[in-house]
């Protein structure tokens, strides 16, 4: 923003800075270039159509779609509450914000251990769930829970930002026209921040699709049940490097696609 406002003011970076920056770009780009170089392209269609790869693909897209849906359902109201938390006392406000932020900074494996401590057989809720005949760990629902845990903050922060930027007077206008608070929320607030919800959902989906640590810890690696794309790719690296490459290419393609779909207006700063 500042740079475009006064393009002439900022001094040109020195040669040393440019050189270091080039190394930085190399760190980011060279591994992906290497991956693309080593992918056995001619065999790719066959690899993608093979049983284990297809199984992992299907499981990943199914679970990531469900957890994205769960993130939207839980995350939009959470974002609304967070955006209104300014009027709260400092302590509860900070606690809430911290709770939403923790999954972003917590190593996912630790998240998986924490989920086991809650839902596992010897976990806090384990006995109660067992009494109901429910065993979550190492099931497909566990994959969805792990993905939701790590992806939810992306949805919440994307929507909260949009809600903060929303002119509250548009909601007041709806009220003067007779809309109840629920009607105002459903007919005015949500559609107005719709692009942010879509952007947050796309980020959620990408994060859920790439989820590894929390999933393998909490849900394990049962083929067809909990062995998602990243886990299958990691495991295949030892025995079937071709499979690993094929899965890696799929994940990379999805990531690039997300960057193309997310335009400036949806997620400024990410795609500028």
């Amino acid at each position: 923003m500042l740079a475009s406002a006064s393009p002439d003011r900022r001094p040109r970076p020195s040669a040393l800075l440019v050189a270091v920056a080039a190394i930085g770009v190399g760190v980011l780009v060279l591994p992906l270039v290497a991956l693309l170089v080593r992918v056995p392209w001619p065999e790719l269609p066959g690899l993608l159509a093979s049983g284990p790869v297809l199984e992992a693909l299907g499981l990943s897209f199914l679970t990531a779609s469900i957890s994205t849906l769960v993130c939207v359902v839980l995350g939009v109201p959470l974002a609304v509450v967070l955006a209104h938390a300014d009027t709260w006392r400092t302590l509860p406000r900070r606690l809430l914000r911290t709770a939403v932020t923790v999954p972003l900074v917590l190593p996912p494996v630790i998240g998986g251990i924490a989920l086991l401590m809650l839902f596992g057989r010897s976990g806090v809720l384990g006995p109660a769930l067992a009494a109901l005949g429910v065993g979550l760990p190492f099931t497909t629902p566990a994959v969805v829970i792990a993905q939701t845990f790590v992806a939810l903050p992306f949805l919440v922060f994307a929507v909260e930002g949009a809600l903060r930027g929303l002119d509250r007077r548009i909601e007041q206008a709806a009220a003067t026209l007779g809309a109840s608070r629920m009607q105002t929320f459903a007919l005015v607030t949500v559609p107005t921040v719709g692009p942010a919800i879509a952007a947050g959902a796309i980020l959620c989906f990408t994060r859920a699709l790439g989820e590894f640590g929390a999933t393998i810890t909490f849900a394990g690696s049962l083929p067809g049940v909990t062995r998602t794309l990243p886990i299958a790719s990691y495991l295949a690296l030892q025995s079937e490097p071709g499979d690993a490459m094929a899965l890696a290419v799929v994940l990379l393609a999805v990531s690039v696609l997300v960057l193309l779909v997310l335009r400036d207006r949806w997620a400024p700063g990410i795609t500028r």
């Binding site: 002119d167 007077r169 548009i170 007041q172 206008a173 709806a174 005015v188 559609p191 107005t192 719709g194």
Partner: peptide
């Protein structure tokens, strides 16, 4: 309203 506040969507 002063800036009308039409519903943009």
């Amino acid at each position: 309203f002063q800036d009308l506040q039409l519903f943009p969507h």
